[in-house]
Amino acid sequence: MFEARLTQGALLKRLLDSVKELVTDANFDCSETGISLQAMDNSHVALVSLSLRAEGFNPYRCDRGFSLGVNLNSLNKIMKCAGNEDVITLKADDSSADSLCLLFENSSNERVSEYELKLMDIDQEHLSIPETDYDATVMMPSAEFQRICRDLMVVSESVTIDVSKDEIKFTAEGELGTGNVKLKPTSTIDKPEESITIELGQTVSLQFSLKYLSNFTRGTPLSDQVMLCLSDNMPLLVEYKMDIGYIRYYLAPKVGD
């Protein structure tokens, strides 16, 4: 038996919104410790990795590990039937999980709706992501990162990210001209959500597709801060941390010139 009840149902809506543009089908791997998902986009350029800890649910019950193969478009359609303030419960029979039951309860518990989503067998490639000591780790307001991606898309489909001790610089060069945004580290003790920090082992300069980066910024409503981890000749890690877990995106860099 699998059962996971999330008091903040809106969080599930936001999570789904931050995954569904990148992948259409995905396995939700459920275990005693929580729910996780790893999926690559069709072109194998980007990967999303989601982890939700069991303690974030009340109650959480999973007797044995199993996978829920979900079409995210279908799940999204059903999730639209949930109110933003609803408590959402996911239920499945782990021995023969051919459907996922979704229960939406409003705060006064007067309205309860129940939906069954048909599950599918998804044969998904799983990548092993090594623990990496990144050359540069940058924490910044997630809304700022979203704005930079949106703004620079006006200029080009690619962005070069340069990180030094004193600044992180985003540069775009296109047919109409060029643009760049530089951010310096700031620490605002009373407003930690607005701070920018740079931890640097060595300077980094990497080029990425803005289309994918802006796709990742769909995670913005999940966290005030976003973490960017970069190393030369390594995929970029973009992480949004939540109370209940995290969503991580990996993006392969552009190579050569």
Partner: peptide, 14 residues
């Protein structure tokens, strides 16, 4: 122009 890399060349499949 630079070409888009793929994750397969950085991470191994399990």
């Amino acid at each position: 122009a630079a070409t888009q890399g793929r994750l397969d060349s950085f991470f191994t499949q399990v």
